[in-house]
Structure formats: structure tokens, C-alpha cells
Design a protein around this nucleic acid. Sequence first.
DNA 1: GGTCCGCCAATCCTATAGGATATTTGATCC
DNA 2: GGATCAAATATCCTATAGGATTGGCGGACC
Lengths: 219, 219
Amino acid sequence: MSAVDIIGDRQITRPSGLAEEVYRRIRADIMSLKLPPDTRVSVDSLARELGVSQTPIREALSMLEANGLVSKKHFTGYATAPRMDRAQLDELFEFRLLVEPHAARKAAEAMIEADIGSLGAVSGESASSHDGFADMDTEFHKLIAQGAGNNLIADSLARLHIHVHIFRSCFRSEIAEEAVHEHDAVIAAIRARDGAAAESAMRRHIERSYGRLRDFIND
Amino acid sequence: MSAVDIIGDRQITRPSGLAEEVYRRIRADIMSLKLPPDTRVSVDSLARELGVSQTPIREALSMLEANGLVSKKHFTGYATAPRMDRAQLDELFEFRLLVEPHAARKAAEAMIEADIGSLGAVSGESASSHDGFADMDTEFHKLIAQGAGNNLIADSLARLHIHVHIFRSCFRSEIAEEAVHEHDAVIAAIRARDGAAAESAMRRHIERSYGRLRDFIND
DNA sequence: GGTCCGCCAATCCTATAGGATATTTGATCC
DNA sequence: GGATCAAATATCCTATAGGATTGGCGGACC
């Protein structure tokens, strides 16, 4: 009998290592703004708080650094990345505008029916709270990127979307009713297998989203 | 006086930490095929070989894992990523085809003169050896991505280009005379500040490059 | 009053030791 | 001869202790 066992809901608790678990935890704390941008992160404190040794903390922070969520200064320690400035927001949306409409088109052409079903499941409902909308938005874009059948694109967008999430959370942006409608437009086009319509609907969504977020920053 | 000192060519040797140095070292070994794809990588061995403790090795490997160059299996150890298969190659070039022509267009419109100068410096010369061409190709695409003024794009492409480099090295691909000509066509278009021409020249270059690499794989 | 210098605390960085696990090897049995 | 099982090895994972460095604080000096 292995040390890991079957738990109630028939799910193996595969221990991918403490490092990965710590990674998820810290990333969650960053995304929930429990660790605000530009905040010092002490290895020692985290080790005590989470009740593990320093080594897995260090590994997790190294991975977070490689993903651009924290930065390390030699002999000074780690700190969460500063909030995006105007230039970075521009760069990020230029990138999204380049990739996501293409992904939407491919998804409309190649997505399997089952995944289109799950896509409908993240439409509108549970968009009552701010966090609810954020999670829904994340899931929406992730499903489409995966539906396009390109893991590289999906991973790149997921990595970037984290920063969008943080930026949006910083300003407690009101839940955009428009965004839900824009999502629905994309979903409808994908359901209709209309690649061109999906591409332009996604482009419109991202452009509007860009406009909504850009208002918060003027430096 | 700080511990780090000024060296001959007026450059500070800023010690970014052992972890980063180890990171570069391992990445170089992977790119030079000294660590071939799908090869076990022992933390202990590396520690002894490089004469450092296990901790910086572990941090470096964590960063490499986040960048997709090695993978970790719990209680089994690290291993270099397996060589790209056909599907991954397709995904990678779909991505490049999406991003790089756009970058070339922007570079033609916005690149400053000085950088165009350095661009000409990587044209043709030192393309005699295989490694020489590989480095030149890397530098060529990096300069254009940076010239487009979008760090996100530049970083994403740099990360992907490493895998192209490894794949090409695996097959000891002959130095493609064509590639140099295609590069020159892009450079000429950028020099002429012709965005449309730069975009299509880059698209053509990547498509041809894709065709050249695709021949090596048929599974 | 402003500036510079030395001290102190906090933190990171490194090294080593011990526990746990997967893979491999060898012998035994069918 | 092939398959199965068990022990041994190599490796990773964790924890703790000690050395090195940076940044901040207070006092002295101009």
C-alpha cells in the first residue's frame, strides 16, 4: 500500500511535490491580492506560515519568477511584480489582439461539441460577484484557447491572463454587463461554426475590454 | 569598496546569484545537445560537477521547468524535455506565423536606425558553421521582435526559439543558404521602412523554414 | 541642519544530514 | 527460459545550522 491513498470522491491525491502545492498557494494569494503588487515576500515567513521547509518555497518562487509574477533581487529577496503600467497594458493587449481572435476562429472551426457545451456553462451565470465574473472570464478564454487545439497558445494566454486578472482586481472594476454580452456573441458564433464571426466578435470583445481597463490608468 | 569590482572592459560583474548562473549553464548544455532531449538530469551529479550546493541547482531546474525545458516527475527526478513531435512543431509554427510577421511590420515602422544597423551585422557573415548560423538566426529574430517594441512578444518568441534551436540541432540540419537570403529580404524591407513588405517577407521566411524542418519528422 | 560613517538586524545563500520513494538488479519459482 | 518477488541502490525531498550580504538606524562631525 502506497502512502497516498484513495479518498472519498474517487480522486487520487497525487503528491506532485510540495513545491507545486506551494506554487499554487502563492499564485492564488497574488491573484486574490492577499499579496498586493510590489510587496516584499520573505522566504522565511512563508516557510513558517505554511509549515514547510525553505526549499520548496524557494522552488515555488523560482517558478513564479520565471512566469513573471515575482522578481528577485540578489541578497534582497523576492517581491511581487509591480502593477502593470500603461506601456505594459498596451503590450499585453496588442498581444491578445493578435492571438485571441485567431484562436476564436480556429475554435469555431475545430472545437468539439462537448467543449462547446462547457463553454455555454460559463456564460452569464455566477457573474454576480466580482470574483465570480473574474473566474468565469478566465475560464471562458481558457476554453476557447484550448478549443483552438494549440497548447502553446493556450499556455501563453493563460500566463498573460493572470496579469489581466490582477490588474482588474486592483481597481475593483465594476462587473461589466457588456462583457457578458460580448462573451455570448463569441459563443453564439462558435455554436454556429462561423469562424469569421467568432474572430471579429472576439476582436471586438478584447478591444472593448481594453478600453474599459485603459480608463483606470493615465500615467 | 564593494566585493564586486570593475573589470577591464568597464563592465560590472553583477552577481545575480548562483541560481541564475547555473540556469544559464544548464540551458546552454541543453541547447548544445550536451544534454540531449529526454535525458535524466541528476541534481546530485550537477551539484558535484559544478561545485555548488543542491539548492541553486534545484532553483535553476525549477526555472527551466517553468520554461518547458525540463520536466519533473515526483520522486523520480528531472529530465530534459523530449524532442518535439510533429504536433508540437505544427503548434509552434502556427504561433510564430501568427506573431512574427506582425512583429516584422511593426519593426519596419518603428525600429530606430541604430538597431537596424545591428540588424545588418547579423546578415550572412559568420554563417559558415552550424552553430554560427544558429546564433545568427537567434539574434536576427530577437532583434526584430525587440524592434517591434513589445517585450511580451520578444520574450515569448525567445522562449519558443530555444525549442526550434534544439530541434534543428538534433538533425544537424545543413546550413540553409536560402535562409540567409530570406533574412536579407526582411532586412531590406525594414531598411526601406516598408511594413507590408517586411510582413510578407517574414511570413515567407517562416513558412519556408517550417517546410525545411518538417521534412525531418514523419511520425 | 545636513551629511557621512559605523553598527545592528533581517534576510538570503550555502552546506550537510536524515527520511522516503521509485527504479533496478538479482535470485527464486513455475 | 520467462515471470515474479524482494532486497539494494540511487535519487529526490525535507529539515536544520552556519556564513555572507544588504538595507536601515543612530550618532558623530562639518
